[in-house]
């Protein structure tokens, strides 16, 4: 009960801050990591932050749309990850690297 009361004390803004922070962690991960797989994971983190926010809003407003959206995001994220990993494998086959900073043939 006491733990629930803590939940009750949480305002919606806390969720917003939390997911924004999570999002930013993911974002900075994307920016500062070079390994493509980790970048991919960081993007997942960003998406999950958004999911959290959607769920929070949804429950706060008593509106189901947000939760449904979360399911779609999860599905799409999975599909995206699958395609992404396939591309990564493709790149890896040709370059033997998963480091994105080496991929700079196209520029100018």
């Amino acid at each position: 009960m006491s733990s629930l009361s803590i939940f009750n004390q949480l305002e919606i803004s806390h969720y917003i801050y939390l997911s924004t922070v999570l999002f930013c962690i993911g974002l900075f991960g994307v920016l500062f990591r070079r390994n493509a797989i980790i970048i991919l994971m960081c993007i997942e983190l960003m998406l999950n932050a958004v999911n959290l926010l959607f769920v929070a809003f949804s429950s706060y407003m008593g509106d189901a749309d947000g939760q449904i959206f979360v399911f779609f995001i999860m599905v799409v994220a999975a599909a995206e990850a699958a395609v992404g990993l396939a591309i990564l494998v493709l790149v890896y086959r040709n370059t033997r690297k998963t480091d994105v900073s080496f991929l700079d043939n196209l520029k100018g």
């Binding site: 994307v30 920016l31 500062f32 994105v100 900073s101 991929l103 700079d104 043939n105 520029k107 100018g108």
Partner: peptide
Amino acid sequence: LSRFQNGNIEYYLVYMV
């Protein structure tokens, strides 16, 4: 301008952000 376009995706992401 083309110096921004250095081919490195990390930079691109940074510019975007």
